[in-house]
Amino acid sequence: MLMRDSIGDDVLLDVRDLETHFYGEESVTRALGGISFQVKKGETVGVVGESGCGKSVTALSILRLLPKLNAKTVGGEVRFQGRDLLQLSDREMRQIRGDQIAMIFQDPMTSLNPVYTVGRQIAEAVQIHTNASRSDAMAKAKEMLRLVRMADPERRVNSYPHEMSGGMRQRAMIAMALACSPELLIADEPTTALDVTIQAQILRLIVDLKERTGTAVMLITHDLGVVAETCQRVIVMYAGRIVEQATVTDLFARPAHPYTQGLMRSVPDRRRGRQRRLPEIPGIVPSLREPIVGCSFAPRCPFATGICSEQTPILHDVEPGHAAACWRAEEVVGA
């Protein structure tokens, strides 16, 4: 197999310099400004950031599900098991989607068809990618619902999505996504719309299933708590770029980017004791319509110096396996 440089055998997804633009009536939004990262086999990677940072666009770019009219991936490669997904035909891409890479969304209602039973939809997903007969596929659907610990799977297999609660729908979505045993599961804010007790159940389920099936998971979320509880490695995004990448323990113990630090401090956390004021990140996220000179976080950054507003920092290793895109990352780690 043709492989560029030293990609280890265990790398499942290798994204390089991925760049996606959105086109408005008079402007171009640089939603992704060239991001590179890898997902290894069986690994759970969290992608965190605030709205508009490009985390969902990353997922859609990988799966080529961007709205065709106003968005385009203009550069980079997405190597999945050695093949560049961006070069595949639509037909080949459809084969990969759902079979080798599956995705679950924040609102399961948008991806479940309201006029078919949940069982039939899971069975259909199975039939598209395998030669299973209809009855085999239905049996598989039931098995999947049991796997995701759906209460009363025998009955639920014949339920319509609107007859289920949000938590059950998300279970059904996960069942559907995992029905073809994909290599990679992309979960975009899978628990954001759910209540905390249900969120805890669903996160537990995703972790369990990952351990059981060996599927790699890319978990997109805005919630640092969710990342801490489920992921092994974390990618922090800001304004369309990756600003920090580390194992979960390193990231929470020694955040190396001022943005990551700010993010962590602005979450109320009782372990720090009750302080009356939360440390806040001043200012707002920059507009991606105008080109950004220098570091995009510089205007809000307490560490910013002259170079920050002139040159874009490159993602570099601060310590082994821990990279940050900050000119002063080495000082920031200790701060």
């Binding site: 969120q199 708590g225 929470f252």
Partner: peptide, 12 residues
């Protein structure tokens, strides 16, 4: 107990 805590050391 269900609220996620940003602390990877906490095992649930």
């Amino acid at each position: 107990a269900a609220a996620p805590v940003p602390d990877p050391a906490r095992v649930r």
